[in-house]
Computed example of a mutant assay.
Amino acid sequence: MSQSRGNRTPFDEIYDQPDPRAYFSTLGRYGYRTPHHAQPVFRRLLAERAKSGRVTVLDLCCSYGINAALLNHDLTFDDLHAHYASPGVAELGTAELIERDKDFYAARRRADAVPVVGLDIAAPAIDYAVSVGLLDAGFTENLEAASASPAFLRAAASTNLITVTGGISFLSARTFHQLLQAAAEPVWVAAFVLRTGTYRPIADALAEHGLVTEVAVDRTFEQRRFTDPEEQRYAIAAVEAAGADPAGKETEGGYHTALHLSRPPQHLATPHGSFVWPGS
Rank of each mutant, 00 (worst) to 15 (best):
R233F: 11
Q223A: 13
V215A: 12
A241H: 01
E230V: 11
F226C: 13
L261Q: 00
E252F: 00
A258E: 14
D228W: 02
V215D: 07
R224T: 11
Y234D: 15
L261W: 05
E250G: 04
E252T: 13
L259P: 06
H256F: 15
D204M: 12
D245A: 02
E208N: 01
A205I: 07
A241Q: 05
E250V: 04
P246S: 09
R263L: 13
R225D: 13
E250Q: 02
V212S: 10
A247F: 00
L261E: 06
D228K: 08
A244F: 15
V212W: 11
T227A: 12
D245G: 03
G243I: 07
I202F: 00
D218Q: 11
R263W: 06
T213C: 03
R225Y: 12
L206N: 09
E230W: 05
V212F: 15
D204V: 13
F226Y: 12
T227N: 14
F226R: 11
A235L: 08
A203K: 04
R224K: 15
E208V: 01
I202D: 07
A235R: 01
V212D: 10
A242C: 09
D204H: 12
V215Y: 04
D245M: 00
A237W: 08
H209E: 11
E240K: 04
T257D: 15
H260V: 06
A205W: 06
K249V: 06
Y255L: 06
T213Q: 01
D218Y: 04
A207R: 14
R263M: 15
R225F: 14
G253A: 09
T251P: 03
E240Q: 03
L259W: 06
D228C: 09
V239E: 08
T220W: 10
A235T: 01
I236N: 05
A241N: 08
